[in-house]
Every structure is written in structure tokens, then in C-alpha cells.
Computed example of a mutant assay.
Amino acid sequence: MALLMQALALPAHADAPTPIPMQQLMELARGGAAALPADVRIEIEPGQLDARLKLAPCRRIEPYLPTGSTAWGRTRVGLRCTDGPVNWNVFLPVTVRVWSPAVVNVGPLQAGAEIRAEDLQIREVDIASAAAPVFRDPQLLVGRLLAATLPPGTPLRPQHLRVRQWFAAGETVTLVYVGEGFSASTEAQALSNGLDGQAVRVRTPSGKIVTGWPAGERRVEVRS
């Protein structure tokens, strides 16, 4: 994790600038972004407070995330003075950049195009530029269809892909029960289309209705 070594200063009395606790801001950013890969590096770019603010000098400033804010992209952090002549509280705009290897497209891709391996490469990008996750494995994208036209160098995210349909309603599927140390399978009839990431109901030969998850071509899994 790259640390910002230079201490910036909040607007305060001209002879007593108040330093921003950058190390604590970095820890706040990493703790506020769930499940970050180990190979990311975080950068924080502080914005500017209202120039009309005149803050008293402070020996201890505690940063915190306000309710409803996240340490991701353009956001804000709270800064409160807990050791000074006046205990003040302000909100500082910041930009959190999270640099990580991710899959991007080499050249422009048209909506409806099927993604090929040669269309993709791994590049370090700011994954915090949008809320949706990125892909880190190109093989997860090969053969998928695009839902939108993408300019070169776009980090691919789930919303860029058409929802994959593994089977249609009425088709015969393999229903697989998966548990710790065992698996069993039977045939069943799909009662709705099998779309990636969406639960689907199937009917077994005995007439029982079971809910599972599409997991491949004409395959539904039920995990216990």
C-alpha cells in the first residue's frame, strides 16, 4: 500500500496550520472498502475545505466516515478535533483511488460482440472509479456478449455484459445437490429461464418443486 508521505494542512490560523492525519485516513480507506485484494495500492487526494472556515489549532484530529459515506471514489471524511482549545468538527472532500490489476479491453468493442481472449489484457486501473466490481481473470469473460459499446481500456464490470442464459423454461436440466463431502443429481424440468445469478425453480420427476441456481449449460445446483 502506497502511503502519502507529505503532511497536508487544513486551513487554520496562519501561524498554526493543523496537519491532516494521512496515515489514519489511509487506514480508514482500507477498512471502509470491503474485501480488497492484497495487491492493491490506495491513494487519497484530499480536497479543500470552505475557505471561510477558521479552525482553531488542534493537537489531535480523528478522521471518521460519516453515516452514508464510503471510502470509495469521490467521497468525504469527517475530521473532529478532540484535543484543542475548541473541539470542532468538519467534513473534508476526498478522492480515494484504489489501483488494482483488472481486465480491460485492448481495442473498441461493439455492443453484442462476443469477447475473445485477444480482446483482453490485464492493466492496473482505478477500480474505485465506479461502485461495481471489476474482473481480474480474463477467462471469465471469453465467450460472453457485450451489453454496451466500450472504448479501449475500459475496466470490464458486470453491467457491461449481457445476462447469460444457461437454459430456457421447459428444458430438461440436470439438478445437482451439493453438500459437504457429497453430491447427487437427477433430471428436472426448468420452470423458468436459467439466467446467471438468478434463482430458478425446477420440477423433479416426482412433481416436487425445487429452487436452485443456474451453474452451467442445463445445470442447476442446490447447495446445503
Rank of each mutant, 00 (worst) to 15 (best):
S183F: 11
A188W: 02
T172K: 15
G153E: 09
Q165H: 11
Q159A: 15
S185G: 03
A190S: 07
A168W: 09
E187F: 04
L191Y: 11
Q159K: 07
F167R: 12
A169D: 06
Q159N: 14
L156P: 04
V176H: 04
G153V: 10
G179E: 01
A168Y: 09
A184P: 00
L175Q: 08
Q165V: 13
Q159T: 15
Q165T: 14
A184Y: 04
S183N: 04
E180D: 13
L156V: 07
G181E: 14
A188E: 05
Q165W: 04
G170R: 07
P158S: 12
A188I: 06
F167N: 07
W166K: 04
Q189F: 07
R157C: 07
R162H: 06
T154R: 06
T154L: 08
T174Q: 13
T174D: 12
T186H: 06
H160Y: 00
T174M: 15
P155H: 01
G181D: 14
A190G: 01
R164H: 11
A168S: 13
V178L: 08
V173K: 05
Q159V: 12
V178E: 06
R157V: 06
A190Y: 02
Q189K: 14
V178R: 13
S183W: 08
W166Y: 10
L175W: 08
V178N: 04
V178I: 10
T172V: 15
S183Y: 08
S183E: 04
A188L: 08
A188F: 02
T186I: 05
A169R: 05
T186Y: 01
R164G: 09
S185L: 00
Q165G: 13
Q159E: 15
Q189S: 13
R164A: 13
T186V: 10
V163W: 00
T172H: 13
Q159F: 00
G181T: 09
P158M: 07
Q159P: 00
H160D: 10
L191K: 10
A184C: 03
A168G: 02
L191R: 12
E187I: 05
W166Q: 07
R162A: 15
G170M: 12
R164F: 02
V163N: 14
G153R: 04
S183V: 01
L161T: 07
G153W: 02
R162S: 14
V176Q: 04
R157A: 11
P158D: 12
W166S: 04
E187T: 14
Q189R: 14
W166I: 01
L156K: 01
L156S: 03
A169T: 03
E187K: 13
G179Y: 04
P158R: 03
F167D: 07
A168N: 08
F182Q: 15
V178Y: 09
R162Y: 01
L161W: 00
G153I: 07
T186D: 06
A184H: 09
T154P: 05
R162V: 12
A169I: 09
P155Y: 02
R162D: 12
T154W: 01
P158I: 02
T172I: 15
E187V: 11
T174G: 11
A184M: 03
R164D: 10
T186C: 11
E187D: 10
G181K: 12
F167A: 08
G179D: 03
S185I: 00
V163R: 15
T154M: 08
E171W: 05
